Simulated scan of single mutants.
Amino acid sequence: RIFNVDDDAKYLNTPNTLLYDKSQALYGIDKAKMEIRKNDSCILVEGNVDCIMSHQSGIKNCLAVSGTALTPIHLGIIKRFSNNLVLAFDMDLAGNNATKKGIDMALKNGFNVKVIAMNSEKDPADIILSSGEDEWKKIIEKAKPIYQFYFDLAFKNRDIKSIDDQKKIVSELLPIFKKIDNTIEQTHWIQKLAEKLSIREDDIRQEMKRINLPRQEFEVLKEKKSKPRKELLEEAILSMILIEPSIIEKLTPEQKELFTFLQKENNDSYIIMKSELLKEEGIDIDDEWHKCVYEIENIYREEKRKKIMAEIKEKEKEGSFEEVKKLLLEFNKLTKKDDKN
């Protein structure tokens, strides 16, 4: 965070590392998750200092994106606790395409999005320091639904009797309204725009038809293809090893040899984040460990049996009957172990 008023930027962004990837991390999630669920609302700010100051002022359902754009991973984490998102970003209609893309992504994924009208020269931390905690709470209470925010912003400092200003307003709002999936909601805003500008609704619709939106593919969280059970179990085991490294010693030498995924370097930022979430949920590591190991061992044994059966068929075709005998012994050994389990 830069405090020198002569500097143009408020924050210096650090590069992503193996341990810290801003696109996957939400600052304050460990402290805010239960408050987000309790309030059924998440307040999202840009800077970590903004988040800290909000918590100190009593607004504890607050997270920070650490100066980066909103990502599908961020939304996936927040959606676990609430579908209501309140953004405290410095926004305008003309700029910050990354922020607008994040908002579009949130809307597509079923979030109710509101925006806190921010002064471009003051972020939440500045407001709390200069005007006090109560002022910040009042500003949050005045948060506007996203389309109302866009609507009011388009009319700000514009003369609705001026043809030029009317054209600017329409050109800013229609691409936004065209993205609205719900026909009733879209009609509401078109009618409101027509009424405000004293323009026929049909003319507004005709103008909207001319707009060609660029094709944008957003990750829809609820429609995301689920991972195979084996991969989920591997991730869970790796996460638990990060939490309690000594737990790996509970595996038998045979299990260590069987679980080939343990040989990979465990520095994936997603696994690191998942281990943090497991810690926060307060699960019984020993109990979860035994369940996961038991289930994944059965999956690995079944895969190994299928592989051996395929090899047996190949060796039979080749006439390598000694090899077939060895493979059958190995197959029977695996089957007996499964019977014991």
Rank of each mutant, 00 (worst) to 15 (best):
R1A: 05
R1P: 14
L18C: 10
L19W: 13
Y27S: 13
Y27V: 13
I29C: 08
D30I: 07
M34W: 07
V45N: 04
E46I: 06
N48A: 03
C51N: 14
H55E: 08
K60R: 13
N61F: 04
V65D: 05
S66L: 11
G67R: 03
G67Q: 03
L75E: 09
K79L: 07
F81N: 12
V86S: 07
F89P: 11
L93T: 03
A94P: 11
A98N: 15
D104N: 08
A106W: 09
N109C: 06
N109E: 04
N109Q: 03
S120Y: 01
D123R: 01
A125R: 09
A125C: 12
D126K: 05
I127R: 05
L129R: 12
L129A: 12
L129G: 06
L129K: 12
D134Q: 11
K138Q: 14
E141Q: 13
E141L: 10
A143M: 10
Y147V: 09
F149C: 02
F151M: 04
F151N: 05
D152H: 02
D152A: 00
R158M: 10
R158P: 10
I160A: 02
I160N: 10
I160G: 04
S162T: 02
K167Q: 10
K167I: 05
K168Q: 13
K168D: 14
I169A: 03
I169C: 10
S171V: 08
E172T: 01
L173P: 09
F177T: 08
F177I: 09
F177E: 08
Q186S: 10
Q186L: 07
W189V: 04
R200E: 15
E201V: 11
D203T: 13
R205V: 08
E207A: 15
L213N: 08
R215M: 12
Q216H: 09
K225H: 03
L233P: 15
L233I: 13
L233R: 11
I237R: 06
S239N: 14
I241V: 14
E244I: 02
E244R: 11
E244H: 09
P245V: 01
Q255R: 09
E257T: 04
L258Y: 05
Q263H: 07
Q263Y: 03
D268L: 02
D268R: 03
S269Q: 12
I272C: 12
M273P: 09
K279G: 10
G282E: 12
D287G: 09
I296G: 09
I296Q: 10
Y300W: 06
R301V: 10
R305L: 11
K306E: 15
M309H: 02
E314R: 03
E314N: 06
K317H: 04
G319F: 01
S320P: 03
E323W: 01
K326H: 06
L328V: 01
F331V: 00
F331L: 14
N332P: 13
L334C: 00
L334A: 01
D339S: 04
